[in-house]
Design a protein around this nucleic acid. Sequence first.
DNA 1: TCTGCAAGTAACCGATCGGTTACTAATGCA
DNA 2: TGCATTAGTAACCGATCGGTTACTTGCAGA
Lengths: 219, 219
Amino acid sequence: MEAPANVVNLRRRQRGERDPVRTREAILETATQEFAAKGLNGARVDTIAKRSRANKRMIYHYFGDKAGLYLAVLEKTYAAIRMAEIGLQLSDRDPVDGMKQLVQFTWNYFIQHPEFLSLLGTENLHRARYLKQSRRIRELHSPLIDMISKLIERGVRIGVFRPDVDAVQLYITIAALGFFYLSNRHTLSTIFGRELDTPERLATRGRHIEEVVLGYLRP
Amino acid sequence: MEAPANVVNLRRRQRGERDPVRTREAILETATQEFAAKGLNGARVDTIAKRSRANKRMIYHYFGDKAGLYLAVLEKTYAAIRMAEIGLQLSDRDPVDGMKQLVQFTWNYFIQHPEFLSLLGTENLHRARYLKQSRRIRELHSPLIDMISKLIERGVRIGVFRPDVDAVQLYITIAALGFFYLSNRHTLSTIFGRELDTPERLATRGRHIEEVVLGYLRP
DNA sequence: TCTGCAAGTAACCGATCGGTTACTAATGCA
DNA sequence: TGCATTAGTAACCGATCGGTTACTTGCAGA
């Protein structure tokens, strides 16, 4: 009995046994965690090798070098959020409802994908040096901008949104409101002396973000 | 002729000549740039020594180790923003004007102090490990929270602000709107294919942030 | 003016870590 | 079935880098 191709084998690989797809996948997944937790400079190739149960040599075999592995992680992470965004189906009745859905989608995606937030921070520390190398990511535009544009247009037409709202600015704003809270929760919670990532506090923040965006958009 | 005490001597120090205040200060300033540019792991002690024209041994003399130097940089940077915040004098007439001033102050401070944004990111990558060690920083609360509370209170009383606004949430929101744009400008500008830090674009973002905050606060 | 201590210098060291060498062996296909 | 290909292993290597050693020297206060 063999597992079908393209499906990752969950059984623990025996010494010497080959499974290139799974090995590559395991390295990539472990590397995502490691780069997200430690940044590009803090991440250790040996740690990734050990935790993914792959030989260090395999990392160089599949990804060339540490930077190549990091770039692969970045591409996978960006591709994942773009895929999720494409899957977002907004209510086509009320633009107010549609905007709420979009805002909550973004907030929930950030909560569920802390590795995306961390890698974004790391990549910016490096002045987007790696992202600039990836034609694939550069061309992977967010569909949210278009969705926001259309929502604004419809909302303005039926008089529920203010005019003269820039879709790109609003896109940045919606991301910003969630990103800052989650990305800086360690320093913020230390200074405020209270946890920020309990389910209640996260829900409270989610409501606030929605109120800010929708409050702003009122005519 | 000697320079008075506590005033940093600008003349280039000669070999062997002593000036402990200036040496310490030069190391701290250079370290701030280095840690902001490269993060804690990417920063190089030798680079800091060379650029500050101090002997590497002096870094260990004054700050113990690399982490001690980083903590000193963090403390200095936090103290600086708190000092600036304390110096902020808001219009005591119109709460709308007061809030605009507070929002623009925050935005301008972030533009003028990119090292603060970067260090904040670095510190959060390290899960606030160093900030937690500093009693000084932990007790250095932002006066902005209080200012926001009072502005909201007055604004609600005279009917220009909506009720039920949480001051801490709004504080986080005001910081978020500026932080995200500036901190992630490298990835954002790569994907949008346009510069984000020209004076015009910065002014546009500043206006947007103000509109979002004041738009939201309307009753 | 003497002197103890802090400030300063240069050379060095050992651990870490990204990357490589040299090799073995499983696998798919001619 | 045999063989080229490529997955996989283990041991190793050299550069980097945080930190130290061993020493010298300027200078404030006795």
